[in-house]
Amino acid sequence: MSPHDVWEAFNDPNLDGPGQLATHVRLSLIALAAATAAGVALGVAAAKLGGRWTAFMVVSVSNLGRTVPTFALMALVVALTSIGERPALAGLVLLGIPPVLLNAYTAVRGVDPAVTDAARGMGFTRLGVLTRVEIPLSLPLVFAGIRISAIQIVATAVLAAAVGAGGLGVLILAGLANSDDAVLLAGAVPTALLAVGTGLVLGLAQWLLTPRGLRPRTTSHTLAPHRTAPRPPEKDTP
């Protein structure tokens, strides 16, 4: 098996690699757009309008979204409806919402009241505070959520093939079924490249969107966005 064999397999008219790639990208984009719109709208609304109960619900739903396996979720949606592209899309949207929702909620809630207060004190209008302060400060975190969501959607779209929605997973499953490494890789390599590319592009966008003063030196994965590394003990000067 050589790179040439893989390339041949990818272009095999029966497998239609380019077509599956296009389907994969299309499914991912639609799902991401819908998940982003829903996640941001719900997150901002929850942050602006909700109280404690809302906060609890947001965190619980997001945590549940984290623990329910994406593959199982999509399989479940399809099993409850029908095989095909639409149910698969619905599954992808559903799993894409929690990261965006949680981050949008946290971002809007997290804007330091002192900062908005100071901005208003300097004479910004309400709209000015929103566009010049709150949105720029929230954007990096919202975008981080979109990135996590995108990576998950692209990854799970591979499994959409298993429920009849097409995409690059078709080649991987065909390769597995026939023990044909060339076909397997003709699906796996573009999938990997697509996912890594998505991660890089969105990561770069996130970095560019972050105001210079807020760029972190070391980032970590967190359970809840505001709980990170242990903080040094507070200084004891009263």
Binding site: V158, V189, T191, A192, A195
Partner: peptide, 10 residues
């Protein structure tokens, strides 16, 4: 970032 199924396949 690499999707799990693709990673297994690789």
């Amino acid at each position: 970032t690499i999707p799990s199924l693709a990673l297994f396949a690789l």
